[in-house]
Write a protein that binds this DNA or RNA. Structure first.
Lengths: 335, 335
DNA sequence: ATCTATTTCGGGAACGTTCCCAATATAATT
DNA sequence: AATTATATTGGGAACGTTCCCGAAATAGAT
């Protein structure tokens, strides 16, 4: 059997209560006693029993990381967030557990039920769901503290975090303009996601700032997939053959477009300049290296974990936006 | 306060013991009683207290998913494994928690200590570490059951799972040969990883089968990174300008090579055929779509979880190899 | 030295389960 | 009907903590 607080008590000829207080740094135990206890704990190789702690304190120190189990392709970088989230939570003695839900089969109340079943004291919703998806209604009303990504849900017990999407899209568009492009197309993702509207706003902001007219036809709504990028750019070039640069709302669409354009002899960036969004690490090794808006995943992960701890400790929900960076790659031509 | 087994007992005018047995499907409770209990549990919205269960049973039903927190780039597809591992574990009422270690700062005993601290009853080591890394010594001797990826550690309480690497490399090489290539180079990953030796063996096997000579100079040892792919192919082409096809031991190196070759005007597949390994989903959208050996991540994840459950239930460690598939892409030319 | 205030410690209930063993109810046998 | 066998239930300890409250020890004041 593992060594318990009781074994330490016996070894030190103390009561269980005193040992508990000594171990937890509680007030009311003599310095000398405390060091004796700590020493004995170390010698015996004491490891606290988390189940017992949970049981008596009625709190679990367990955090649910919520993933949509089907749409991993949409955001490969989520994986990069995990170590940072986990490391930060560990600092506060929290453990991160994986919770998966399926966006399509989701039924009302599923998330709070899952969190209750898994006995977590808070959660971080990594995956984004379409605006109006029932999960957001659940998040708004459940009593588990939550931090959500890529959605502006904000309640007393729910914070949201994301890249500053408008700024990111603005930076991308502005970069194209600064490279001399004037006739610029935008292949957006699905209109059902919040980020799509924000990225569009950023695109418009940059175009407006440089007094470049934006017609509805130079904006194509797609779906954030590689195939969607292909279709999007085809439609765009059919409508506007005069376009010299395209901003894709994510890297995956940009890549899908580039690889299919190559087949019909359209070279990047010689014939068309392209910039993406997300900063997938693979962009550096794309052919050509893909210009993109880089999301700061380490910062996002660390901050999200911090925000959840704050919520658990009683703070009210808040909104945080992280500043993105530009990677220039080689897919944009100076003209 | 949450509803407990006691509340059900009161509602049904039964003892706590009987309710416990009814809920757990134990033998010795009348059908009528059991259904009354189940009904009451449903009505009251009973959710079992996992901490109490853990405490009394001395088992945690928690599984550690071990990740190397710095080398995520080496294996982006790990993220895809997570939902499958988690779903399978959930079937057996296990929860998956994230455990991160750092390959560089790792000190002996760190993993078993971490697993004890986190109170898990087994673990799945997702990340691969270099052969001889101290973590493998720990894995061999610790008493937590473990399933490791990409390493052949095998003990009574430790199973290993992986793609059939030799077959995968064989399939890739054979595909190049079948497309008419005879002078084929191989850019391998770091010699410190087991998979590198296996992929080399698969390469050799295919070459031998077709009686194609293999000199040491047509094999380059690199490091599985994009930059390493670039350096590797440069060295290779310098030594053997007559080479018409290159097999890279992973997709990342293949991509790094392709994007840098493009800068000096080498076109894929017109001037050089390329095939990778891993089956990153992004291969489909690479320019050109990258031929590769596709690892069956869903199968790997599901099977790994199954294997861990078996170990926990007392089975001895075993070795499992999953069959990979070929994706032909458009980076290999028929000659 | 005595009394009071303060610090330090110990006893024991409680958290929500499981599981062993005893008690009771029911069925089977004579 | 009495006895025995079996099926079903209940009582209560145990798991390892925390925390309240009272007891003991020490320090401070007179």
């Amino acid at each position: 059997m593992r060594v318990s607080i009781k074994d330490i008590a016996i070894k030190c000829s103390l009561s269980v209560s005193t040992v508990s207080r000594a171990l937890n740094g509680d007030y009311g135990v003599k310095d000398r006693t405390r060091s004796r206890v700590l020493e004995a704990a170390r010698e015996l190789g004491y490891v606290p029993n988390l189940a017992a702690k949970e049981l008596v304190s009625q709190k679990s120190r367990l955090i649910g990381i919520v993933l949509n189990d089907s749409e991993f392709e949409a955001r490969p970088a989520f994986f990069e967030l995990l170590p940072h989230i986990n490391k930060t939570l560990a600092l506060y003695n929290y453990r991160a557990i994986i919770c998966t839900v399926n966006a399509h089969s989701y039924s009302k109340g599923e998330l709070p039920d899952l969190l209750t079943l898994r006995n977590v004291s808070g959660c971080i919703i990594l995956s984004a769901f379409r605006a109006g998806h029932p999960i957001y209604e659940d998040i708004k009303h459940m009593n588990h503290p939550a931090v959500v990504f890529e959605s502006s849900v904000l309640t007393r017990t729910c914070s949201n975090i994301n890249t500053d999407e408008i700024m990111g899209a603005y930076m991308a568009t502005r970069y194209l303009i600064e490279c001399g492009h004037r006739r610029i197309g935008f292949v957006n993702g699905s209109e059902h996601f919040e980020i799509s509207r924000e990225r569009l706003a950023g695109f418009r902001k940059a175009m407006d700032e440089f007094r470049l007219p934006v017609s509805d036809t130079q904006i194509v709504w797609s779906d954030y997939t590689g195939g969607g990028g292909k279709n999007g750019v085809e439609l765009l070039l059919q409508r506007h053959p005069e376009i010299t640069a395209v901003f894709f709302a994510n890297d995956l669409m940009a890549m899908g477009a580039i690889s299919s354009l190559a087949e019909i002899g359209v070279l990047i960036p010689e014939h068309l300049s392209v910039i993406g969004y997300d900063g997938l690490f693979i962009c550096k090794y794309y052919n050509p290296p893909l210009a993109t808006v880089v999301i700061d995943n380490p910062a996002l992960g660390t901050k999200a974990a911090d925000m959840l701890i704050e919520l658990i400790n009683g703070s009210r929900g808040k909104t945080v936006r992280i500043v993105p960076q530009l990677f220039r790659g080689k897919s944009v031509k100076q003209i």
